[in-house]
């Protein structure tokens, strides 16, 4: 495997807090999942590769160049940040056009790429609406579109599925897998094992700023099966959603949220749940779905204790 991203004894601290601790690893073409609970150091790991942070110690190289202070790398690197931040007054099309201009394309090429990127993330119809009026899932998708539109060789995706509804989650998973198959280097962070597992088998496990393990996700998955997986869904008709999933053998429990729009499901077999929920989600108008990371945290505690 040719290394696209290289971390050589890289550490990063914020004052007295160590976010990344003496990490040496490489990431090559294909999809690699960066898996760890919130606060594990995933975002710092990605930001070092995205040249947003300089390593306090050691080196981080992307395509053979130091990531910090090499803006020309961003011709070939796309970044999908975790933060839900936009110039809210811009339409989806204007947002992509503006960022493509900043990547050096002329107006005609910007337009062509923006249109294509909007099509890729199924936002063509919403292209002339202001981003301020987009749903959480649409915002995630337009963020994804800006990271892809300039055809990068390396993609750094920070929690790209967060807040997406099941249909677009599946669409985005397929997109990430396809990008990996095309030979691009895709590093995807997540705190949800099953999200990562849907995209790749190759994972970097990160906890407390250290790489705990690298390798096949199935080994982790075996451990994970001992822990029920929690999924929260926001639906227009939560009762219809509940009716559709409550009888399934893999569903352990189901509760309604206080605001009446949320349903929280515990499942023993997340894969089956995610497959089964797609049709029900469309009918019940599911607009948001996320998984808290307590279950992954418990696996990490188990791993660390071993």
């Amino acid at each position: 495997m040719t290394a696209t991203l290289e971390y050589v004894r890289a550490s990063r601290w914020y004052g007295p807090v160590i976010a990344l601790n003496d990490v040496t690893t490489t990431v090559g073409p294909g999809v690699t999942g960066l898996l760890g609970p919130n606060g594990a150091g995933k975002s710092t790991f990605l930001k070092l590769a995205a040249g947003q942070l300089a390593p306090s110690q050691g080196e981080v190289r992307v395509l053979g160049k130091a990531a910090w202070g090499s803006p020309e790398l961003f011709h070939r690197v796309g970044v999908c940040p975790e933060t839900d931040a936009f110039w809210e007054g811009l339409t989806g099309l204007q947002f992509l056009m503006a960022l493509l201009r900043l990547t050096g394309f002329d107006d005609a090429e910007c337009r062509r790429r923006a249109d294509h990127a909007l099509e890729q993330v199924a936002l063509t119809e919403a292209r002339d609406r202001k981003i301020g009026g987009y749903s959480k899932g649409m915002r995630q998708r337009i963020k994804m579109a800006q990271s892809l539109a300039h055809d990068p060789q390396v993609l750094l995706l920070d929690e790209p599925l967060s807040g997406m509804d099941p249909v677009n989650r599946r669409r985005t998973v397929d997109l990430v897998k396809k990008l990996g198959r095309e030979g691009r280097t895709v590093l995807v962070s997540s705190h949800i094992l099953h999200e990562v597992e849907a995209m790749t088998r190759r994972v970097l496990l990160i906890h407390n700023g250290r790489i705990l393990a690298e390798g096949d996700v199935r080994e982790i998955r075996d451990l994970m099966d001992e822990h029920p997986h929690t999924v929260a869904l926001r639906a227009r008709d939560p009762r219809a959603l509940a009716r559709a999933v409550v009888g399934a053998p893999h569903v352990l429990s189901l509760t309604f949220g206080a605001e009446g729009e949320w349903v929280t499901v515990q499942t023993a077999r997340p894969d089956e749940f995610y497959s089964a929920v797609v049709d029900a989600a469309v009918e019940a108008g599911v607009s948001e779905m996320y998984s808290p990371d307590e279950n992954l945290e418990s696996v990490f505690k188990y791993l660390v204790a071993r």
Binding site: G51, Q52, F74, V79, P81, A85, F86, L99, L102, T103
Partner: peptide, 10 residues
């Protein structure tokens, strides 16, 4: 938090 978009361009 939009600075990220500006700082991740060539």
């Amino acid at each position: 938090k939009t600075i990220t978009y500006l700082l991740t361009r060539p």
